[in-house]
Design a protein around this nucleic acid. Structure first.
Lengths: 337, 337
DNA sequence: CCATTTTACGGGAACATTCCCAATGTAACT
DNA sequence: AGTTACATTGGGAATGTTCCCGTAAAATGG
């Protein structure tokens, strides 16, 4: 099958017009007679004409496309952020190219290349847990392509960021455990490369400090977010001479995994060990027992990030460079604590 | 900030070469001297040169981009299918544009327009529950742009489809309930517009027939997949003179919602009422009690669909038009039945 | 040393569209 | 009637890249 695209030239020839005139009709330019307008419109409809955005983008040096790069796609977190972002983007007439890096630095680099090659007008990025070098992202800055980080941000770069108050969320979560009379609270932390890990850890430490509970470094376990390893760490914690009576996990999948392991051992939650997570994954209220967790306004994260990006694209305001939007979290207390 | 893209002409001018030569280096064409090759490569690197895919796509009439249109993004089902599809696509050098239709026909139509305008080489589509008119999809056929349906397919169009054996899956699920000694099995069905609803309903009916259990139409409730309505239907079922002792739901979110309502009423699952879902959502094994469900090979659905699409793009083999790949389901028996 | 082949590079068209500038035609006004 | 104004339309450049074709210089062969 020979595939020939219907172009404005085809329409022009059939109507004995110039491509300029046809273009004018299709773009809604005023100076064109009603008669020709109608003729063009009808023929275009009949021929299934679709404007070729590639050529327009090439000409305008603007693709009306934004890129979104996320580290993973499994939990409900990023899909929902994406929904929020896409909503705003679509409203403003922007398409979206979504890439997930699978938590691999190399894939992330490849993804940024892809975005550049496809001439995106801006990118929304959440980093992988492996990312420690940011050269591939600084290219965007050098080229003047707006970039906005969300959730997993790069603190070395002075570009807009959208995060939640991880510190406060963690603080409140741990405070809640303390008020439930828990004395030895363990923390399954994330890798230090991620600011969210660091901030949540700080929240954990400060909450303990405030209530004058000594911080036992043995109870703080940073890990690389590979879910299969949770079992090792939880088992390790339970076999300590002085085991914890609560676990605060860096995120919900980790908390849920921990919870399952604990229950398989025949321990009671929350009586023997309480568990608290972070993010309020959509699973969390469905499991048994429902998980206490710090909820994030996921859709709002996506929409504010997209809004910030598009504002930057339209009017490039450089004072905005260092804007950081910190959204509120909310502690949702359920039966696991 | 004035944004000027680095082009091959810029590189050519700085080195006193023609754009042809630079292009040759960048595309790896052999007939170019080692000296100039090196010079070009170095300068390109230094200037952060990135080839502009828009112009290449325009020239080749091929964008190396495939589109994926899914009805929703909330459950883990479609994200996982997308991961499977993207893996294959990336392997074959294709980018991906993802759109979700939010279960709205209008949005789906808009999404197809977007795909066409962006010159995708092919599309992967799963329909919304509202879609009853397929003109917007037939455009792809007319233009000779390959299209592959998955999960929610359009049976009117003779294009490749990837589905699971819904009939068999449903049959086995209901058979399993019968063997658990359930006599009055209700079915929360999907809308008739979706072939998956129809097939699963047929499986349900035939399983009952096989074991000579009369089909009570009162126990078959088709609904529009709006989760909030599940409560009404479940309450209705429970208040029947002769209430059901099992529910087979069209999908896992529905089953989970039903399960929660049933438990809130103080009924025991599975003793009073057993519940079975469909799709093995990643939540299903985490809830209490874990849900018996029919699992689908999600990633494989995505990868086979993508493979089918790309094969069609590369060599356009028209006999393939009516190919239907039916993947196997597996009944996963858990505590809810 | 000349003829022929090879090697390396330049010129220009093509892709689909928009937009500026010019050109044509018509109506209105003096 | 002649001039001006305005309404429509056409022509051509430009966007960044590839690829075909042509051509000069260098290398090879006798």
């Amino acid at each position: 099958m020979k595939r020939h695209q219907v172009t404005i030239v085809d329409i022009a020839q059939q109507l004995n017009l110039s491509k300029s005139t046809v273009s004018r009709v299709l773009t809604g330019h005023p100076s064109v007679s009603e008669k020709t307008r109608k003729a063009v419109m009808e023929l275009a409809e009949k021929m299934d004409y679709q404007r070729n955005m590639l050529s327009i983008s090439l000409l305008n040096k603007k693709s009306n496309t934004i890129g979104i790069i996320v580290p993973e796609f499994m939990s409900s977190y990023f899909p929902q952020v994406i929904i929020g972002a896409q909503e705003i983007a679509a409203q403003e007439g922007y398409n979206t190219i979504i890439c997930h890096s699978n938590e691999h630095y190399e894939t992330e680099v490849a993804n940024t290349k892809l975005m550049l090659a496809n001439q995106v007008d801006g990118v929304l990025v959440s980093l992988t847990k492996e990312t420690r070098n940011f050269d591939h992202l600084k290219v965007f800055e050098r080229k003047g392509i707006p970039i906005v980080f969300f959730n997993r941000v790069c603190e070395d770069m002075s570009v807009p960021k959208v995060v939640v108050d991880d510190y406060e969320g963690a603080f409140r979560a741990v405070e809640h455990l303390i008020k439930r009379n828990k004395k030895r609270i363990a923390h399954l932390a994330g890798p230090d490369s991620l600011p969210i890990s660091v901030k949540r850890l700080r929240g954990y430490r400060d909450a303990l400090k405030k209530y004058e509970i000594p911080v036992d470094e043995e109870l703080i376990i940073p890990y690389d977010l590979t879910l299969t390893k949770v079992k090792i760490y939880v088992n390790h914690l339970l076999q300590l001479d002085n085991p914890p009576d609560a676990i605060f996990a860096i995120n919900d999948p980790t908390a849920i995994e921990a919870l399952r392991i604990i229950r398989k051992k025949g321990l009671r939650v929350p009586e023997d060990i309480a568990v608290v997570g972070f993010s309020n994954d959509y699973v969390s209220e469905l499991i048994d027992p429902p998980l206490t967790t710090v909820s994030q306004p996921v859709k709002e994260i996506g929409s504010t990030a997209a809004r910030l990006l598009i504002d930057q694209i339209n009017r490039d305001i450089s004072e905005w460079k260092s804007i950081i939007r910190v959204l509120k979290t909310e502690l949702i207390i359920r039966k696991s604590s």
